[in-house]
Every structure is written in C-alpha cells, then in structure tokens.
Write a protein that binds this DNA or RNA. Structure first.
Length: 979
DNA sequence: CTACGGTCCTAA
DNA sequence: TGAGTTAGGACCGTAG
C-alpha cells in the first residue's frame, strides 16, 4: 500500500469530522469578513487533506486512540455501537443448569425475554438476542481441568443486560446460580477483548469492506464488517503523527477578584499546533478581543465581539488529537464552556461533546507564571500595543518546547501501557490500576475458555463463586480473611543505623513478587480446597504445594499452568525483549518508545500482586497475595542467613559478611571493616553490581548513599525517604538537607557540611532566608493555589502560609499567615519556629551518626546567637501597635516623625544623611538587579514585569527589595524636615 | 509529660 | 461499571 492511502488517525471521526468541516467552512466565510487573509491561511493549514481513497482498492489504516460507546440512533434496534468499529452485542455467562439441552434454549429465552420486557417496560422490543451453550471453565479454583456447559446470553443493549444479570434466574421453576460470569466488564473493554483490539494499536480495514459515507447520510450505519487489528509489534509499534494543540486563555478579571465565567470575558486565546515528530509548531495564532498589533510569525485573529471570538476559536479547534496547556482541564476548558454558554456563543455544542463529557487529563501541577489579574485588564483596556504585549505573554504560555517534549514522552509511555495492557488510552488517565490487570486477565482467560465470575462483596468478606456444575458447596464460601483484617506484608529488616564509610553491597531480587507467582504457580486456576483435593485424590508435594500462608494449596504446573503465571511470564519476557531492543536502538525517539514499553511491562507485572490483594476489588484472592508476601518474607530471611553463613571467616573468607538492612526484596551487606579484597569479590562477582559507598542509614525506609554500578565512577546520590525526596517539607529544609548530604557523601567534607548548616541557621535567624523557601511545598498546597473560581480553599486543601511570631504556645492557626500579607505588613517571621520545628530534627538525623554528641553544637553554637532584627510582638495585637519614631543616630524615641534625629545627634546629621543615601542607593541597585532578572525570565528586557507568581523565589525577593527601598526612602525623607 | 490515633507521604 | 498492596517514619493534636 502506498503512503498516500494511509489516513490520519482522526479519520475515525469521519462522520463527525466531515459534518463539522462543513460548518467550519461556512463559519470561515463569516470569519473572513473580519480577517480574510488570516482565516484563509488557517483553513489551508488546519484542514486535514481529505484522502482520495477508493473503497474498492484502498485499505484504511489508522492508529486508534479512542474507543467509545454510543447508541446508534438510526437503527430501529437502537443498538449500542462502538464508534468506527461497528456493532457488537453485550453478553455474559451463567452456568447451565444440570441437564440443560439445546432444546431448552427457546423456552428459557422466552421466559427471560418476558421478564426483561416487563422490567424494561417495553413490550415491543426484543432484549435477549441469542442464547447459546458454550463449554467453559471457571477461573476460580482448580477443578481437574473439566469444562462445563455455560449459557452465553446476548442482549440487545447494556441496560437490559445489567437488569438480567442482577435478577434471579429460574428455569422450569428451579432457581439458577446467582453467580454470573463476565457480566461486570465494561462493554467497551468486552468488545476490544473479543476483537483483539488493544489500546492505541493500528487497525486496518481492507478494501471493499468499508464505504465512505456521504455527508447527507452521515448518521447512517457504519458498514465496516472486517478489520485487521495489528498487534503492536515491529512495524506496528510506530506512532501516528499526532496533532498537538497547545493553548492558553486570558480572562479579564476584575481587580483583586478571581475571574468568573459568568462575569469576566475571555479576551485572548493563544494556540500552537505541532505535529508529533516535528520540532516547530505549524500553526501559531492568537484570537484577540479587539484590535491587536501584528506579531512576528503569528496569525492574529482580531474579533470584535466575545461570542464571535469563542465561535471562531471553536471552529478553529476542529481536529486536534491532543490538547495540552496549563491546567486546561480544571480552568481553561470549563471556563470556555461556561463562558460560551453564558453569552450564548454558537458552535460550541460540537466542541462540548468532544471535550467536556470526557474531560480527562494527565495531572498537571506545574505552576504557571501568572500575570496579575488587574494587570491583564489594564492591558486589555489599553491600545493595540498593550494587547499585543498580552498576546505575546499568552503565546508564551501556549508554547514551551520542553514542556511539549515532556508531554510527548509521557504520552508515549501511556501509549505503550495501553498496548501492553490492552485498555483504551483514556482508561490510563481516568481509571486505576485494576482495569489494566482485568483487561489482561480477560484476554488470557478468553484464550483458554475460562470464564470469570462477577464476585459479590459483602462488607469485607468476599464470596467465591460457587455453582452446581463443579459440585462445590452452593453456599458461597468466604475467604479465610476475616472482616477488617489485613494480610501480612513484607519484612523490613531492622536497620543497624549509622554512617558507613565502607562499601555496602546491595543484593536484590528483580521482580520478586511476579517471580514468586511464577515459581509457585500461584493463580486463581490452581487454587485448591479440601473438597477438590479429596474429589480428585490429589497428593501433597506430588500434585500440589502448600504455601507458608495458612497452608493455602496450589496445584503444580504439570496439572495446570496458572493463568497469572502465564501473564507474568509473557510480561517479563516482553520486557526482556524490549530492553534488548532498547540496547540496540540508536534513534532517540524509538529509544523512548522502547523504554516506555519496558517500564509499562514492569509496572504491569508488579500490579498483578496488588490486584489479587485488593479486597474491595474485582477479583480478590487473598490466598494468592498473602502467599506471595509469605514467600517473600521467607526469601529475604533466607537470603540474610545464606549471606552471613556463607561469606564468613569460618568458610575461609577474609571477613564476616553482615546484613545491616533490607526491605522486601533487597539486603544491604557490610563485609567487615576496611575494603573488600579482589579475592573476595570474585566468587560473587555478579552480586556486586550495586554498591553504596559511603552509606548513611538513618532508619527503616530512610537512607542515603553514593550509588556505584562500576568501580570507576559513582552513578548518583541515592536518597530514600529523606526530606529531600518528600514533598511535604519546605524548600529550606529540602535544600539544606540535600546540600549537607552532597557535601558529606560526595565531597566527603563533613566540616564543610557543618559550616554550611551553621551558616543557614544563622541566616535564618537573621531573617535572610527568602520567604518562598519557608512555605510548605506539598502538592496539596499547589493544588490549592490552582486557578479556581471563588478561590476560597475548600476543606482539606492546604494554604500557602508562613509561621509568624506570636505569643508563646499560641495555637498554629494564630501563627500562620498569608505570605503576601506578611510581606506587605512587615510581620516578623518566627525564625525560631523554623529552626526548632523544621530544620533541627532532619539535620540532627544526618549529623548525629557521623558526629555523635558533637552534632549538638550545630544548634547551640555562636551562630545561633546573632542579633535578631525583629520586633517583639504580642500575638495578634501587634497589628495595632503604633511604632514610635526613633532618632536615626542613637535610636532614642522621639516625639514625632517630623525630625530625623534627637538634639544630641544633630551635629552628625550630614553624616547620617549620607549614610542613609548610601543605603537607599544600594537597595535600589539590588532591586534593579532583581527586576532585570524577572524581565529576563519573561523573555524581554523592554517591557514591564508582569509576573507575580507566588512560587518564584525572585518574585519574593523583588517584592521585599521593593519594600526595602520604599522604607529606606521614607526614612530619607525625614531629613527633609531638618533643613 | 507520654501515649495514641490520624494524616501525609514514601519504600518496595 | 470506584478504589492495586502492606510497612513505616515523621509530625500534629489531644486525652490522660
């Protein structure tokens, strides 16, 4: 097939896209009245070439990204339809009653149909399409590999199906099994599994198997009957040239009030469209309300009416595959939709159906540099030059190449995940981990004629499906796990805390839990109970194993190879393959794809264990998960023993090995004092792949060390669980701890680290630490700071705050204050609080193992006795205290602000004036420098600074510098009264 | 003052 | 058709 016949992925929206394209063109004519040239350029750029394909000769090949479910309105059946793929009918299974024959189907179907029509309150329609008998096996438990008859029941719609599966079945007045099979799987996923479609794979529709639907028939039935689904390997692991629309909006908020869609207009929308794989955007434009001066390499679309602008934009957004932008899910998109609704802009319904109903997105907590709301309005209300400045700002937010690249890599990882697990792309964003395991489980089960029960949970007790065909107790049997109980997890070896200035060897099991499941054949399909052991006359150790968890028993692979072990083997093998290919690959983009793939495979393998242990989940099996962890505990314990008993002086080695720590699947080993000899290295060469040297072991799950994988260079500073990797600490703590660790572990300079820590403490007590460093820096705080109408923090949100001085033992809520307020009102920060409550403990934890008792001097030395230039305060009353003016020479209180000095200091007036002038000058220089820095960050030296991001450290410094200048100038002015 | 439970985040 | 697991440190507020 030729390149020309390959169709863009969005061809899947044939019906809708064509429809919108016609209105798009209509509305373009409208737009042209305003800006003919520009819109013409747009149309040419945006519109995907309508491919000239002939259904008789050309196949359609595309990478599908979305599979969804809708009702086919045109069909008299109102059939459910998977868009672009065709029609499939939902179904589920129940075990057939004993003795059920093909002849019984008609009678059964009639009775079921009757019940459904009654319950659906619809007499004329047929709900049960078909019932057939299939030989299947339940996934739950080993039953001697016997297949049994199941009734596969097809329905005309999903609602009827869910009604049927919730009801009680009867046949010839005998109640049937309450347990249904495969009735609780998402319809879309069901379809994909049955058709062997995986997320983001390539679909090929051969010639003559489709037809191009004329516009006037665009709602009619899709005629595609046969498609080829390419498994995502080799050639078909490629990625379609996606169109990525990156955009940003600006709203004209009222002064000091967060913009609300009902009131405040959208004034600009900047857009960039990039094709994946190309480094420059091929469309760069900005829609502006009112006139706007030209911008280089950018189409400026001037609109003179709010509704017109929104319409023009919604028409512009015909066909992107991916939308990105700062917080567009939570702010930009909802705002646009609300606004369009409010002002009655036309053309949004289409837009709405595509982007609002399924609003899902990759969580994006980046901080946008904000233009202050009041400034936006001023710029908007200015002339076309000021609006141009705003537009440039808006464009800058829409396009950041690095961000684009990051998002793309992220996208690739997701895509690989979709392909590996088989779920549609959007599930990865909107669903959890379970669905991925379910998808794989159903796929593999399908191949082996296994059916999966829809388990019912009652409280915390999970009931296994039980039914007559297997002669298992018809009354459901609860798991051995009682209500509220948790199963035991992994072992964490008690750490021998301390600083190790010797190489610490680490051994770890790769993919421990998956390997355990494979090695011991742990699976739903291999789990045994007493009854089956008796029935099938199975022999312990010969036919089955008993795990260390409550004597759970599983048959050996020769009787039946478990489904989970098969899935895991496939995943691990695929990962091995991906890693091998990754090693050979040179092209960076394909490298990233492969890396994403191997990562996806690893995560997939690891989440199988979690799935079996999810008591509130779809198919929990504590026998499996608890056996896995029980084996794991045995293994780590044994590893410790083996290492210590084998590598010891008694066995002819030079040193005794000693396990100083271990967690779940790893052990850290110290080989006595000093170095490790060559002779000793040899026999366990492979295991020396990873070494920490030096190594600081602080506590369980808390350590840091220099990580080596080859003897010549260290790879990285690895820190686990320490403040540096935790997001709930303020920046000051993170930075200090990080720097101290680097100095100690990399530079091996303990005293340098001490000095550094002392300097920081001294700076802190002298108020020299910038405020942005003192704010809690958790992701919750960021979430709270998101642009959010009404902007009042909801319960549970964390607010940006700093701790200020208040009366001793004042409750925390009296001591915390908004940083902006603090800055503007000169409220003293409680530096001691930060030292005692935030900095001291983390620092002590690091220095204590190295310095012992000496480390106390860090917190009590001379550096802590600096003069504190803060005003003493009395709680909240401080706000009302009137500051008494003092003499600028000797600080004696004065009667009024009119004079600068007392009479004793009057002779020094000139000298004091000069001094103050110097102060003002140097502060102004400092301020100017920060100003320039902000301008540089903004990308231009010729404009005012618009940024007021609360996260930017420079911003706080600048704000503080500005205030310092103002204060110093105020003092200077007092001299005016003297002459 | 300590003990304890709740919250948050991380290790694996 | 809502949700992977357990172990565990650090911190905070409160009960006693």
């Amino acid at each position: 097939m030729s390149q020309a016949t390959r169709v863009n992925p969005n061809q899947r929206f044939n019906i809708h896209t064509n429809a919108s394209r016609s209105t798009f063109e209509e509305q373009l004519a409208l737009l042209q009245e305003n800006s003919q040239k520009t819109s013409e350029r747009h149309r040419q750029k945006w519109a995907r070439p309508v491919p000239n394909i002939n259904p008789d000769f050309d196949p359609i090949i595309f990478q599908q990204f979305e599979v969804d479910e809708c009702i086919d309105q045109s069909s008299s059946m109102r059939s459910p339809m998977i868009r672009m793929f065709g029609i499939t009918e939902p179904y589920f299974y129940i075990p057939a009653p004993v003795g059920f024959k093909n002849d019984d189907i008609a009678e059964f179907q009639t009775s079921l149909e009757y019940l459904l029509q009654r319950d659906m309150r619809s007499q004329g329609r047929q709900f049960v399409s078909k019932i057939e008998i299939n030989l299947k096996e339940t996934i739950q438990g080993y039953h001697g590999n016997r297949k049994c008859p199941f009734l596969k029941m097809y329905f005309s719609d999903t609602k009827a199906m869910s009604l049927a599966q919730a009801g009680t079945f009867k046949f010839k007045d005998r109640p049937l099994s309450q347990v249904t099979f495969e009735s609780n799987i998402l319809y879309v996923l069901r379809f994909m599994i049955d058709c062997k479609v995986t997320g983001a794979n390539w679909i090929e529709i051969p010639p003559k198997k489709y037809r191009i639907i004329p516009l006037e028939e665009r709602d009619s039935h899709c005629q595609i009957e046969l498609v080829t689904c390419h498994a995502p390997d080799g050639e078909w692991s490629k990625i379609a040239p996606l169109r990525i629309l990156s955009f940003d909006i600006e709203c004209a908020g009222r002064k000091g009030i967060f913009p609300e869609a009902k009131i405040d207009p959208v004034i600009q929308i900047a857009n960039m469209v990039t094709i994946q794989g190309e480094d420059k955007p091929f469309i760069r434009n900005v829609f502006t309300l009112n006139s706007c001066a030209p911008i280089v390499a950018t189409d400026v679309i001037e609109c003179y009416d709010q509704a017109e602008m929104l319409q023009a934009w919604s028409n512009f957004v015909v066909d992107p595959d991916i939308l990105i932008g700062y917080n567009i899910i939570n702010f930009d998109l909802p705002y646009l939709l609300d606004r369009a609704h409010h002002i009655g802009a036309k053309g949004f319904p289409y837009f709405e159906t595509r982007f609002s109903s399924k609003a899902y997105g990759i969580r994006d907590r980046e901080q946008k540099e904000e233009v202050h709301h009041s400034i936006i309005t001023d710029l908007q209300n200015g002339n076309d030059e000021t609006r141009r400045r705003l537009a440039i700002y808006c464009l800058k937010d829409a396009y950041l190449p690095q961000r684009l690249m990051d998002k793309l890599m992220c996208l690739i990882n997701y895509m690989e995940m979709a392909r590996v697990t088989g779920v549609p792309f959007n599930y990865l964003l909107s669903r959890g981990q379970q669905i991925k395991v379910i998808s794989q489980l159903f796929r593999k089960a399908f191949e082996q004629d296994l059916v999966i029960p829809a388990v019912k949970t009652e409280g915390n007790q999970v009931f296994i499906a039980a039914f007559s065909n297997y002669n298992v107790n018809l009354n459901s049997k609860p798991y051995s796990l009682g209500t509220d109980e948790q199963f035991e997890g992994a072992t964490v070896i008690e750490p021998e805390k301390g600083f190790y200035n010797v190489p610490i060897t680490t051994l770890d099991f790769s993919s421990l839990y998956p390997s355990i499941m494979i090695a011991h054949n742990l699976c739903y399909t291999t789990l045994l109970d007493n009854k089956e052991i008796e029935n099938l006359n199975l022999k312990a150790e010969v036919d089955y194993i008993t795990t260390p968890y409550n004597s759970a028993r599983f048959v050996k692979p020769n009787l039946r190879k478990g489904l989970l072990p098969t899935i895991l083997e496939d995943l691990l093998a695929a990962r091995k393959k991906a890693k091998a290919e990754l090693k050979k690959e040179i092209d960076p983009f394909r490298k990233a794809v492969l890396d994403g793939r191997q990562l996806a495979l690893k995560i997939s393998a690891n989440s199988v264990y979690g799935f079996t242990g999810a008591t509130a989940g779809k198919l929990p099996c504590i026998e499996i998960s608890a056996s896995v962890t029980a084996y794991g505990r045995q293994m780590i314990e044994r590893t410790k023993q083996e290492v210590e008993s084998r590598f010891c002086i008694a066995n002819g080695y030079k040193h005794n090995a000693h396990v100083i720590y271990g967690d779940t699947d790893s052990v850290m080993i110290k080989f006595a004092a000093g170095y490790v000899t060559e002779k000793f290295l040899n026999p366990i060469k492979l295991e020396f792949e990873k070494v920490y040297f030096p190594y600081l072991l602080i506590n369980k799950k808390r350590y840091a060390g220099l990580y080596w994988t080859n003897p010549n260079n260290w790879d990285k500073l690895d820190t686990k669980g320490i403040e540096t990797v935790r997001r709930d600490n303020c920046l000051l703590v993170q930075n200090v701890v990080e720097t101290c660790l680097r100095k100690i572990l990399i530079d091996r300079d303990v005293s340098g680290a001490e000095e550094y820590a002392k300097k920081i403490i001294s700076d802190l007590l002298q108020n020299k630490i910038d405020m942005s460093q003192l704010q809690p820096h958790s992701c919750l705080a960021e979430r709270m700071r998101k642009r959010d109408p009404g902007s009042a923090p909801t319960l549970g949100d964390r607010v940006a705050y700093v701790i200020i001085k208040a009366t001793k033992n004042a409750p925390a809520y009296e001591k915390s204050e908004d940083p902006i307020y603090v800055l503007e009102n000169n409220i003293p920060i409680d530096t001691n609080y930060y030292l005692e409550n935030q900095l001291s403990k983390p620092l002590m934890r690091i220095f204590e193992p190295i310095l012992g008792n000496k480390s106390n001097s860090l917190l009590s030395g001379d550096h802590t006795r600096v003069t504190k230039n803060t005003t003493p305060t009395v709680g909240g009353l401080m706000k009302f205290a009137v500051k008494t003016p003092t003499c600028l020479g000797c600080k004696t209180p004065l009667k009024g602000n009119d004079i600068p000095v007392c009479k004793h200091c009057k002779p020094k007036l000139g000298e004091l004036f000069q001094k103050q002038l110097d102060v003002v000058n140097s502060l102004e220089i400092h301020f100017a420098r920060l100003w320039t820095q902000c301008q540089r960050c903004q990308g231009s030296l010729h404009q005012d600074v618009l940024c007021s991001s609360r996260d930017c450290p420079i911003w706080y410094m600048r704000k503080k510098a500005q205030k310092d200048v103002a204060d110093a100038t105020g003092i200077l002015e007092r001299f005016n009264h003297a002459w």
